[in-house]
Design a binder for these strands. Structure first.
Lengths: 332, 332
DNA sequence: CTGAAAGCGCTAACAC
DNA sequence: GTGTTAGCGCTTTCAG
């Protein structure tokens, strides 16, 4: 591998001049520029970004933390972040936490070591104070996540409002007995909580019942969804919900699949609403009514915010593009 | 940020000793080990992997090149690679090519710069010779891709055999008029070509017709699939295929959706076979018969091979785990 | 405009 | 066992 020194020798100049050329320094005479350029090409020279990083403390890599990349929500997020990063000549280092604090700490250490110049956390496991303390080593942005206090810059959507609107949509369609699925325990924090607030507020305002056995907690997979369907079908006919809001398309698909399999009709016997607008939801026999998250905008805004902070600049997040949208299809 | 020098000072030792401690060098007296450890903790010291990399030429990051991470096949691949890498204390740098040669070259440059210690290419755009030439700077492994000549180590499955077996399965079920969808042009290279070979060989052996208007080229999306369905339905009834093999689940779903929508039955009116076994294919009204690729094994074997090469070791790829599987469901 | 020289934080001979 | 020292490839004063 050719080094800057080789280039300098070949061009009969000092390394300093070559370095200046590399960094677009003003005031280099045109002929020397040409000599340097020629030498570089002849030697097939590529500057070592490792050396540059050690010396100048300026890297061009950012970290992305997700819980699992195979979840389409995250892969679309990563897609958006990678695109925006690339546009600004940054590379991305990805780490999956699998809900494990240890990986998160590893990533934070990479920030401390200056391997990454900044970090976008699309998933947070650890203690907010601890995480916030790492900001000393480089900027951190929370993407679609929130800590109780404003310790870390955040890019989020208004999930409460979205669910509130979705409930009003169901109510306006005449549904009166609305069941609710959550991934959490109902009482917990995070977007689970904001969604629940939207649900509760809407039902209260519309004076619709919130019944204990229409609430399903800790449901995550399509398998869980199938079980929810079973539970609903085991309820006495008059006591059954006529619609169900789910916290994810996977769960919604699980419920729908089981209903259809048992020869019930959707939405006639049970309206189903998903969350996420995953790629295949429009391809189902009964296309799924769901809530689309502005994934691309979440990714690009987070990245823009982070890059601004890396350059000590400011960036005003564009909330207008961060709206959730109700996707009305056939299932509800 | 504390440096190795600070630690050495605090522990009243030389940087060399501290460095030895860091690298698990033998022969350091126990008491000094303790002193170093204490000093490190007190200073909250973390070694700079940038400096280590510059000096020792040994990094712990590998690159992954994919065309688009939002394609589930790739996100599952990345998942497997990331897991295996993490197990060996390697981090992953991801880049999407979006079928663009430029990004591929950028990644190759990162290898040249020693930013990454090795590269797994799950997608190749450029000229094989050019790519192969970069092996001078670090190992490269092709994952689920192949170049005409054996220029680069490769981890692949036998797609020809899989499609051959799938066609036999269809034939045994009594299907005689089999249509075929490919993403390419039929004549092109890559796995498209191997699959086509399997298709052709099976039909020849079974003496089944291969008809020009039952072959569909350049189909990629579910939208393309819907169009294929339309084309099939426009054929005179007697001239219609009774089964269709597709190159991807997306296409298969598009075909199925359109058939169902037009009140045709699957598989009665048209049997449909997908490729990839994507997450939601089992949740469709007519669950999709498809071919599952051993994604996790492809990812982990590629990674093991790459890491072995990084350490100048050898690794025998475990072909037994690289089998494609026919997933028999309802659609064919 | 250009060059000499001092490091960035760490490793690896080489001495003792 | 441990310390001294010379760099890895680059940027950046400080002098010309």
């Amino acid at each position: 591998m050719a080094t800057i020194k080789d280039v300098a020798n070949k061009a009969n100049l000092s390394v300093a001049t070559v370095s200046r050329y590399l960094n677009d320094h003003p005031y280099i005479s045109e002929d020397k520029k040409q000599r340097i350029k020629a030498a570089m090409e002849e030697l097939d020279y590529t500057p070592s970004s490792i050396a540059t990083q050690l010396r100048s403390k300026k890297g061009n890599m950012i970290g992305i933390l997700v819980s699992r990349i195979t979840n389409p929500f995250f892969s679309y997020l990563v897609d958006a972040i990678e695109k925006e990063a690339k546009k600004n000549h940054y590379n991305v280092l990805i780490m999956q936490t699998y809900d494990n604090k240890k990986s998160e700490m590893n990533m934070l250490e990479l920030l401390k070591q200056q391997v990454i110049a900044g970090l976008i956390m699309c998933s947070v496991e650890g203690n907010p104070e601890t995480i916030a303390s790492y900001q000393e080593f480089g900027p951190i942005v929370l993407c679609n996540e929130q800590t109780s206090e404003a310790l870390i810059p955040t890019v989020v959507t208004d999930q409460k409002q979205a669910v509130y609107d979705a409930m009003l949509y169901l109510a306006d369609k005449g549904y009166q007995k609305i069941a609710y699925c959550t991934g959490g325990t109902l009482a917990n924090e995070g977007h689970g909580r904001s969604r629940t607030e939207g649900f509760e507020q809407a039902l209260l305002e519309k004076q619709l019942p919130i019944k204990r056995n229409w609430i399903f907690r800790q449901v995550h997979t399509s398998q869980d969804g199938a079980e929810v369907a079973d539970k609903i079908l085991h309820l006495p006919r008059l006591n059954r919900p006529d619609a169900v809001f789910t916290n994810s398309d996977e769960v919604a698909m699980g419920i729908m699949e089981r209903m259809l399999q048992k020869k019930y009709q959707v939405p006639k016997d049970l309206a189903i609403m998903g969350f996420d607008n995953q790629p295949t939801t429009s391809l189902l026999t009964v296309p799924l009514t769901t809530i689309a998250q502005p994934v691309a905008a979440l990714g690009s805004e987070s990245t823009k915010l982070l890059l601004a902070k890396i350059k000590d600049g400011a960036y005003e997040v564009d909330q207008a593009h961060l709206k959730l949208t109700l996707i009305k299809r056939k299932s509800a």
